[in-house]
Every structure is written in structure tokens, then in C-alpha cells.
Amino acid sequence: MPQLDTSTWSITILSMIITLFFMFQLKVSKHSFPENPEPKSVSMSKPTTPWEKKWTKIYSPLSLPLQ
């Protein structure tokens, strides 16, 4: 059974990584970014629900007496 020749793997992997790096750099350099980003003002409107005005007591199962 012939042996697999791995002598060219290192140069192949290295050239692939370098090529991917350059391709990524070119892709990023073509992207236009905003000059001065400013935060958006988000106005949160609170919905009115009928149960907000009432007092309710919530019983958790652990606080109930044992039967």
C-alpha cells in the first residue's frame, strides 16, 4: 500500500490561509461604515393593563401549607 505524500500539505494550508485573509481584507475594505454613529433614542411606551392597578397575591406551591 503506497504512503500518502504529505510534504505539500503545509504550503497548501499556509497559502489557503493567506488567500482567505486577503479575501476577507478586500471584502471588509469595500464595506462603507458610517462616519459618526449616534445612538437612537428609543421611547418605551408602557402598556396599560387592568391588573396593574389591582393588588394581587400570588401563592407559590412551596408556600402553601402541607396537607
Rank of each mutant, 00 (worst) to 15 (best):
Q25N: 13
F21R: 14
P47E: 10
T6Y: 04
F21A: 14
T19F: 09
P39K: 07
P37E: 06
Q25W: 09
F33E: 10
K27L: 09
F22A: 05
S29V: 04
S32M: 15
T8Q: 01
I13E: 07
F21I: 10
S32N: 14
P34H: 01
S15I: 04
S15T: 12
F22P: 01
T19E: 06
I17N: 10
W9C: 05
T6F: 08
D5A: 03
L20W: 08
S45V: 07
E35H: 01
K46G: 02
P47I: 10
F22W: 13
K27M: 13
T12G: 04
P34I: 01
V42F: 08
P47M: 10
P39R: 07
V42H: 07
I17Y: 08
E38C: 01
L26N: 10
L14D: 07
V28D: 05
K46F: 10
T12M: 09
P47T: 03
I17A: 14
V42G: 01
L20C: 15
P37D: 06
F24A: 09
L14S: 13
K46D: 05
S32A: 14
I17F: 09
I13D: 06
T19M: 11
V42M: 07
L20Q: 10
N36Y: 01
K46E: 07
P34N: 02
I13F: 08
E35F: 00
P47G: 08
E35I: 01
S32T: 15
S41I: 04
S10T: 11
I11M: 04
F33T: 08
T6C: 05
P37F: 03
V42S: 05
I18N: 11
M16A: 15
L20P: 00
D5F: 02
K46N: 05
K30F: 03
P39V: 03
T8D: 00
K46W: 12
Q25C: 10
T19C: 08
K30I: 02
S7E: 09
V42E: 06
F24G: 01
M44H: 13
T12P: 00
F21Q: 13
M44C: 09
K40W: 11
S41K: 06
M23H: 13
K40D: 14
K27E: 11
P37V: 03
M23L: 14
E35R: 01
F33R: 04
S32I: 11
F33W: 12
L14P: 00
L26T: 11
I11W: 03
T6I: 10
M23Y: 10
I17K: 06
I11Y: 06
V28L: 09
S32D: 13
S41G: 03
S45G: 02
E38Y: 02
S43I: 15
V28R: 09
H31F: 12
F33Y: 15
K40A: 14
S29F: 03
K30E: 08
S32K: 14
I11D: 09
S10A: 13
I11N: 03
L26F: 12
K27G: 07
S10H: 11
S10F: 12
K46V: 08
S41T: 06
S10W: 05
V42R: 06
I17C: 10
E35L: 01
I18Q: 12
S7D: 10
S32H: 13
M44L: 15
S45H: 06
S32R: 15
T19Q: 05
S32C: 07
